[in-house]
Design a protein around this nucleic acid. Structure first.
Lengths: 145, 145
DNA sequence: CCGACGATGAGAATGATTTTCATTTCCGGG
DNA sequence: CCCGGAAATGAAAATCATTCTCATCGTCGG
Protein backbone atom coordinates (compact mmCIF):
# COMPACT_ATOMS: atom_id res chain seq x y z
CA UNK A 1 0.00 0.00 0.00
CA UNK A 2 1.41 3.38 -0.99
CA UNK A 3 1.95 6.20 1.47
CA UNK A 4 -0.80 8.03 -0.29
CA UNK A 5 -3.26 5.18 0.17
CA UNK A 6 -2.27 5.05 3.79
CA UNK A 7 -3.07 8.69 4.21
CA UNK A 8 -6.45 8.24 2.59
CA UNK A 9 -7.16 5.23 4.76
CA UNK A 10 -6.29 7.19 7.88
CA UNK A 11 -8.42 10.11 6.85
CA UNK A 12 -11.41 7.89 6.28
CA UNK A 13 -10.93 6.38 9.73
CA UNK A 14 -10.60 9.82 11.29
CA UNK A 15 -13.80 10.97 9.70
CA UNK A 16 -15.60 7.87 10.93
CA UNK A 17 -14.31 8.41 14.46
CA UNK A 18 -15.25 12.07 14.48
CA UNK A 19 -18.75 11.11 13.52
CA UNK A 20 -18.82 8.93 16.63
CA UNK A 21 -17.61 11.89 18.69
CA UNK A 22 -14.52 10.50 20.38
CA UNK A 23 -11.08 11.96 20.85
CA UNK A 24 -8.68 11.08 18.07
CA UNK A 25 -5.55 9.11 18.84
CA UNK A 26 -3.07 7.23 16.70
CA UNK A 27 -4.30 3.95 18.17
CA UNK A 28 -7.96 4.60 17.59
CA UNK A 29 -7.35 5.65 14.03
CA UNK A 30 -5.42 2.45 13.40
CA UNK A 31 -8.18 0.34 14.91
CA UNK A 32 -10.94 2.08 12.99
CA UNK A 33 -9.00 1.86 9.73
CA UNK A 34 -8.49 -1.85 10.21
CA UNK A 35 -12.16 -2.41 10.98
CA UNK A 36 -13.28 -0.34 8.02
CA UNK A 37 -11.06 -2.41 5.73
CA UNK A 38 -12.37 -5.69 7.03
CA UNK A 39 -15.71 -6.78 5.66
CA UNK A 40 -16.05 -9.72 7.97
CA UNK A 41 -15.92 -9.88 11.70
CA UNK A 42 -12.83 -10.14 13.81
CA UNK A 43 -11.98 -10.76 17.45
CA UNK A 44 -10.17 -8.28 19.64
CA UNK A 45 -7.20 -10.63 19.80
CA UNK A 46 -6.96 -10.98 16.03
CA UNK A 47 -7.28 -7.26 15.58
CA UNK A 48 -4.49 -6.65 18.05
CA UNK A 49 -2.21 -9.17 16.36
CA UNK A 50 -2.96 -7.78 12.94
CA UNK A 51 -2.19 -4.22 13.95
CA UNK A 52 1.08 -5.20 15.54
CA UNK A 53 2.02 -7.12 12.42
CA UNK A 54 1.19 -4.05 10.39
CA UNK A 55 3.67 -2.11 12.50
CA UNK A 56 1.25 -0.21 14.70
CA UNK A 57 2.27 -1.18 18.21
CA UNK A 58 -0.51 -0.78 20.73
CA UNK A 59 -1.68 -2.47 23.89
CA UNK A 60 -4.30 -5.15 24.04
CA UNK A 61 -6.15 -3.17 26.69
CA UNK A 62 -6.45 -0.27 24.28
CA UNK A 63 -7.97 -2.50 21.65
CA UNK A 64 -10.59 -3.71 24.13
CA UNK A 65 -11.28 -0.21 25.39
CA UNK A 66 -11.70 1.15 21.90
CA UNK A 67 -13.92 -1.70 20.76
CA UNK A 68 -16.14 -1.27 23.80
CA UNK A 69 -16.29 2.45 23.15
CA UNK A 70 -17.25 2.03 19.51
CA UNK A 71 -19.76 -0.69 20.28
CA UNK A 72 -21.48 1.53 22.85
CA UNK A 73 -21.57 4.34 20.34
CA UNK A 74 -23.22 1.97 17.88
CA UNK A 75 -20.49 2.28 15.27
CA UNK A 76 -19.62 -1.40 15.45
CA UNK A 77 -21.57 -4.52 16.28
CA UNK A 78 -20.46 -7.20 18.69
CA UNK A 79 -21.36 -10.69 17.52
CA UNK A 80 -21.23 -13.77 19.72
CA UNK A 81 -21.27 -16.71 17.30
CA UNK A 82 -19.20 -18.96 19.48
CA UNK A 83 -19.37 -18.51 23.22
CA UNK A 84 -16.30 -17.33 25.05
CA UNK A 85 -15.28 -14.58 22.69
CA UNK A 86 -16.84 -11.70 20.85
CA UNK A 87 -16.35 -10.73 17.24
CA UNK A 88 -16.57 -7.12 16.14
CA UNK A 89 -17.50 -5.57 12.85
CA UNK A 90 -17.96 -2.04 11.53
CA UNK A 91 -21.62 -1.73 10.73
CA UNK A 92 -24.04 0.23 8.65
CA UNK A 93 -26.64 2.37 10.34
CA UNK A 94 -29.95 1.25 11.69
CA UNK A 95 -31.31 -2.01 12.98
CA UNK A 96 -30.14 -5.00 11.00
CA UNK A 97 -29.05 -8.59 11.35
CA UNK A 98 -26.19 -10.70 10.11
CA UNK A 99 -25.81 -13.69 7.88
CA UNK A 100 -22.58 -15.49 8.71
CA UNK A 101 -20.86 -18.25 6.77
CA UNK A 102 -20.17 -21.09 9.16
CA UNK A 103 -17.10 -22.07 7.22
CA UNK A 104 -15.21 -18.90 6.32
CA UNK A 105 -16.88 -16.39 8.61
CA UNK A 106 -17.91 -14.13 5.78
CA UNK A 107 -20.59 -11.73 6.96
CA UNK A 108 -23.46 -10.12 5.11
CA UNK A 109 -25.66 -7.46 6.65
CA UNK A 110 -29.36 -8.07 6.39
CA UNK A 111 -31.26 -4.82 6.42
CA UNK A 112 -34.98 -4.32 6.51
CA UNK A 113 -35.93 -6.31 9.57
CA UNK A 114 -39.69 -6.53 9.89
CA UNK A 115 -39.86 -8.80 12.89
CA UNK A 116 -40.97 -6.20 15.38
CA UNK A 117 -44.75 -6.30 14.81
CA UNK A 118 -44.72 -10.08 15.03
CA UNK A 119 -42.57 -10.08 18.14
CA UNK A 120 -44.64 -7.44 19.88
CA UNK A 121 -47.75 -9.48 19.37
CA UNK A 122 -46.17 -12.72 20.57
CA UNK A 123 -44.55 -11.04 23.55
CA UNK A 124 -47.83 -9.48 24.56
CA UNK A 125 -49.39 -12.95 24.53
CA UNK A 126 -47.00 -13.83 27.35
CA UNK A 127 -47.42 -10.56 29.23
CA UNK A 128 -44.09 -9.18 28.06
CA UNK A 129 -43.26 -5.87 26.47
CA UNK A 130 -40.69 -6.55 23.78
CA UNK A 131 -37.76 -4.18 23.98
CA UNK A 132 -35.40 -5.64 21.44
CA UNK A 133 -34.24 -8.73 19.65
CA UNK A 134 -31.17 -10.26 18.17
CA UNK A 135 -31.19 -12.57 15.19
CA UNK A 136 -28.21 -14.34 13.75
CA UNK A 137 -28.41 -16.48 10.66
CA UNK A 138 -25.88 -19.17 9.92
CA UNK A 139 -25.29 -20.45 6.43
CA UNK A 140 -22.71 -21.47 3.87
CA UNK A 141 -21.64 -18.89 1.34
CA UNK A 142 -21.28 -19.43 -2.38
CA UNK A 143 -17.49 -19.63 -2.22
CA UNK A 144 -17.50 -22.35 0.42
CA UNK A 145 -19.97 -24.55 -1.36
CA UNK B 1 -39.46 -31.53 50.47
CA UNK B 2 -40.40 -35.01 51.65
CA UNK B 3 -38.28 -38.05 50.98
CA UNK B 4 -41.01 -39.28 48.72
CA UNK B 5 -40.99 -36.12 46.62
CA UNK B 6 -37.25 -36.42 46.39
CA UNK B 7 -37.56 -39.92 45.02
CA UNK B 8 -40.08 -38.79 42.45
CA UNK B 9 -37.89 -35.87 41.48
CA UNK B 10 -34.93 -38.18 41.03
CA UNK B 11 -36.92 -40.62 38.99
CA UNK B 12 -38.09 -37.90 36.65
CA UNK B 13 -34.48 -36.77 36.18
CA UNK B 14 -33.36 -40.34 35.55
CA UNK B 15 -35.99 -40.81 32.91
CA UNK B 16 -34.97 -37.58 31.22
CA UNK B 17 -31.33 -38.61 31.23
CA UNK B 18 -32.08 -42.06 29.87
CA UNK B 19 -33.92 -40.47 27.00
CA UNK B 20 -30.72 -38.56 26.23
CA UNK B 21 -28.80 -41.81 26.32
CA UNK B 22 -26.09 -41.10 28.86
CA UNK B 23 -24.78 -43.12 31.72
CA UNK B 24 -26.55 -42.42 35.00
CA UNK B 25 -24.61 -41.06 37.94
CA UNK B 26 -25.63 -39.45 41.18
CA UNK B 27 -24.20 -36.13 40.01
CA UNK B 28 -25.96 -36.14 36.67
CA UNK B 29 -29.26 -36.98 38.25
CA UNK B 30 -28.85 -34.10 40.68
CA UNK B 31 -28.00 -31.70 37.87
CA UNK B 32 -30.86 -32.82 35.68
CA UNK B 33 -33.32 -32.65 38.56
CA UNK B 34 -32.26 -29.11 39.35
CA UNK B 35 -32.56 -28.03 35.72
CA UNK B 36 -35.97 -29.64 35.36
CA UNK B 37 -37.18 -27.77 38.44
CA UNK B 38 -35.94 -24.43 37.20
CA UNK B 39 -38.12 -22.71 34.65
CA UNK B 40 -35.66 -19.96 33.95
CA UNK B 41 -32.09 -20.13 32.90
CA UNK B 42 -29.13 -20.55 35.18
CA UNK B 43 -25.37 -20.37 34.91
CA UNK B 44 -23.06 -23.28 35.58
CA UNK B 45 -21.70 -21.47 38.62
CA UNK B 46 -25.15 -20.85 40.09
CA UNK B 47 -26.13 -24.43 39.47
CA UNK B 48 -23.02 -25.68 41.22
CA UNK B 49 -23.61 -23.42 44.23
CA UNK B 50 -27.25 -24.41 44.45
CA UNK B 51 -26.50 -28.13 44.37
CA UNK B 52 -23.88 -27.81 47.08
CA UNK B 53 -26.31 -25.83 49.21
CA UNK B 54 -28.86 -28.57 48.69
CA UNK B 55 -26.34 -31.02 50.09
CA UNK B 56 -25.25 -32.69 46.88
CA UNK B 57 -21.50 -32.17 46.83
CA UNK B 58 -20.03 -32.31 43.37
CA UNK B 59 -17.19 -30.69 41.46
CA UNK B 60 -17.51 -27.66 39.30
CA UNK B 61 -15.83 -29.52 36.46
CA UNK B 62 -18.55 -32.13 36.58
CA UNK B 63 -21.21 -29.47 36.27
CA UNK B 64 -19.52 -28.06 33.18
CA UNK B 65 -18.98 -31.49 31.65
CA UNK B 66 -22.57 -32.48 32.20
CA UNK B 67 -23.97 -29.24 30.85
CA UNK B 68 -21.84 -29.54 27.73
CA UNK B 69 -22.95 -33.11 27.32
CA UNK B 70 -26.62 -32.26 27.64
CA UNK B 71 -26.33 -29.25 25.38
CA UNK B 72 -24.71 -31.35 22.66
CA UNK B 73 -27.46 -33.91 23.03
CA UNK B 74 -29.99 -31.13 22.57
CA UNK B 75 -31.66 -31.65 25.92
CA UNK B 76 -30.76 -28.20 27.17
CA UNK B 77 -30.18 -24.89 25.44
CA UNK B 78 -27.22 -22.62 26.08
CA UNK B 79 -28.14 -18.96 26.03
CA UNK B 80 -25.61 -16.15 25.84
CA UNK B 81 -27.48 -13.02 26.89
CA UNK B 82 -24.46 -11.32 28.32
CA UNK B 83 -21.06 -12.20 26.96
CA UNK B 84 -18.62 -13.93 29.24
CA UNK B 85 -20.92 -16.54 30.62
CA UNK B 86 -23.51 -18.96 29.39
CA UNK B 87 -26.90 -19.70 30.86
CA UNK B 88 -28.47 -23.11 30.54
CA UNK B 89 -32.04 -24.21 30.53
CA UNK B 90 -33.88 -27.50 30.09
CA UNK B 91 -35.83 -27.17 26.89
CA UNK B 92 -38.82 -28.52 25.11
CA UNK B 93 -38.34 -30.42 21.87
CA UNK B 94 -38.02 -28.93 18.48
CA UNK B 95 -36.84 -25.64 17.11
CA UNK B 96 -37.89 -22.69 19.23
CA UNK B 97 -36.72 -19.34 20.51
CA UNK B 98 -36.65 -17.59 23.82
CA UNK B 99 -38.20 -14.49 25.24
CA UNK B 100 -36.15 -13.28 28.20
CA UNK B 101 -37.02 -10.64 30.76
CA UNK B 102 -34.15 -8.18 30.94
CA UNK B 103 -34.85 -7.51 34.57
CA UNK B 104 -35.57 -10.80 36.29
CA UNK B 105 -34.32 -13.27 33.69
CA UNK B 106 -37.63 -15.02 33.42
CA UNK B 107 -37.70 -17.10 30.25
CA UNK B 108 -40.57 -18.09 28.00
CA UNK B 109 -40.20 -20.52 25.15
CA UNK B 110 -41.55 -19.34 21.84
CA UNK B 111 -42.59 -22.26 19.70
CA UNK B 112 -43.80 -22.21 16.14
CA UNK B 113 -40.97 -20.40 14.45
CA UNK B 114 -41.83 -19.65 10.85
CA UNK B 115 -38.76 -17.69 9.90
CA UNK B 116 -37.17 -20.36 7.75
CA UNK B 117 -38.89 -19.65 4.44
CA UNK B 118 -38.14 -15.96 4.76
CA UNK B 119 -34.52 -16.61 5.71
CA UNK B 120 -33.96 -19.08 2.93
CA UNK B 121 -35.11 -16.57 0.40
CA UNK B 122 -33.01 -13.74 1.79
CA UNK B 123 -29.96 -15.96 2.15
CA UNK B 124 -30.29 -17.12 -1.42
CA UNK B 125 -30.29 -13.49 -2.51
CA UNK B 126 -26.76 -13.28 -1.13
CA UNK B 127 -25.62 -16.63 -2.49
CA UNK B 128 -25.88 -18.34 0.88
CA UNK B 129 -27.60 -21.55 1.85
CA UNK B 130 -29.18 -20.95 5.22
CA UNK B 131 -28.44 -23.74 7.67
CA UNK B 132 -29.82 -22.37 10.89
CA UNK B 133 -30.64 -19.32 12.91
CA UNK B 134 -30.82 -18.09 16.42
CA UNK B 135 -33.26 -15.51 17.66
CA UNK B 136 -33.37 -14.07 21.12
CA UNK B 137 -36.02 -11.61 22.19
CA UNK B 138 -35.53 -9.26 25.12
CA UNK B 139 -38.42 -7.75 26.97
CA UNK B 140 -39.84 -6.90 30.34
CA UNK B 141 -42.25 -9.33 31.92
CA UNK B 142 -45.55 -8.48 33.56
CA UNK B 143 -44.18 -8.85 37.07
CA UNK B 144 -41.30 -6.47 36.48
CA UNK B 145 -43.39 -3.74 34.98
C1' DC C 1 2.21 27.10 23.43
C1' DC C 2 0.12 25.22 27.92
C1' DG C 3 -2.32 22.60 31.08
C1' DA C 4 -6.15 19.71 32.37
C1' DC C 5 -8.00 15.66 31.44
C1' DG C 6 -8.68 11.82 28.78
C1' DA C 7 -5.98 7.89 26.68
C1' DT C 8 -2.38 4.50 26.78
C1' DG C 9 0.78 0.56 28.09
C1' DA C 10 2.43 -3.16 30.77
C1' DG C 11 1.37 -6.32 33.58
C1' DA C 12 -1.40 -8.01 37.30
C1' DA C 13 -6.03 -9.46 38.39
C1' DT C 14 -10.32 -11.60 37.38
C1' DG C 15 -13.56 -15.02 36.29
C1' DA C 16 -15.48 -18.45 33.54
C1' DT C 17 -14.33 -22.60 31.54
C1' DT C 18 -11.23 -26.64 30.42
C1' DT C 19 -7.71 -29.89 31.25
C1' DT C 20 -4.97 -33.29 33.87
C1' DC C 21 -4.58 -37.34 36.18
C1' DA C 22 -5.25 -40.24 40.01
C1' DT C 23 -9.29 -42.30 42.04
C1' DT C 24 -14.03 -43.86 42.14
C1' DT C 25 -18.33 -45.44 40.12
C1' DC C 26 -21.27 -47.63 36.83
C1' DC C 27 -23.01 -51.62 34.62
C1' DG C 28 -22.94 -55.77 31.37
C1' DG C 29 -21.36 -60.41 31.54
C1' DG C 30 -20.13 -64.31 34.31
C1' DC D 1 -24.01 -61.29 43.50
C1' DC D 2 -19.32 -60.25 41.93
C1' DC D 3 -15.57 -58.45 38.40
C1' DG D 4 -13.32 -55.83 35.15
C1' DG D 5 -12.87 -52.36 32.06
C1' DA D 6 -14.72 -48.24 30.38
C1' DA D 7 -16.55 -44.01 31.76
C1' DA D 8 -17.15 -40.41 35.19
C1' DT D 9 -15.50 -37.66 38.98
C1' DG D 10 -12.84 -34.35 42.00
C1' DA D 11 -9.32 -31.13 43.07
C1' DA D 12 -6.19 -28.32 41.52
C1' DA D 13 -3.68 -26.38 37.90
C1' DA D 14 -3.91 -24.44 33.35
C1' DT D 15 -6.17 -21.55 29.74
C1' DC D 16 -7.99 -17.72 27.71
C1' DA D 17 -10.54 -13.70 26.94
C1' DT D 18 -11.32 -9.65 29.12
C1' DT D 19 -10.82 -5.93 32.69
C1' DC D 20 -8.38 -3.26 36.05
C1' DT D 21 -4.50 -0.44 38.06
C1' DC D 22 -1.69 3.22 37.94
C1' DA D 23 2.13 5.77 36.31
C1' DT D 24 3.05 8.19 32.07
C1' DC D 25 1.84 10.34 27.68
C1' DG D 26 -0.88 12.85 24.04
C1' DT D 27 -4.78 15.68 22.61
C1' DC D 28 -7.02 19.75 22.01
C1' DG D 29 -9.55 23.95 23.74
C1' DG D 30 -8.13 28.33 25.13
Amino acid sequence: MSARDNRRRARRAERALSRVGVRLTRQRVAIAAELLDEDDDITAQELHARLRARGAPLGLATVYRTLTLLAEAGAIDALAHHPGELCYRWCGDGHHHHLVCSRCHRVVELGGCDLDPWLERISADHGFVATGHHLEVAGVCAGCR
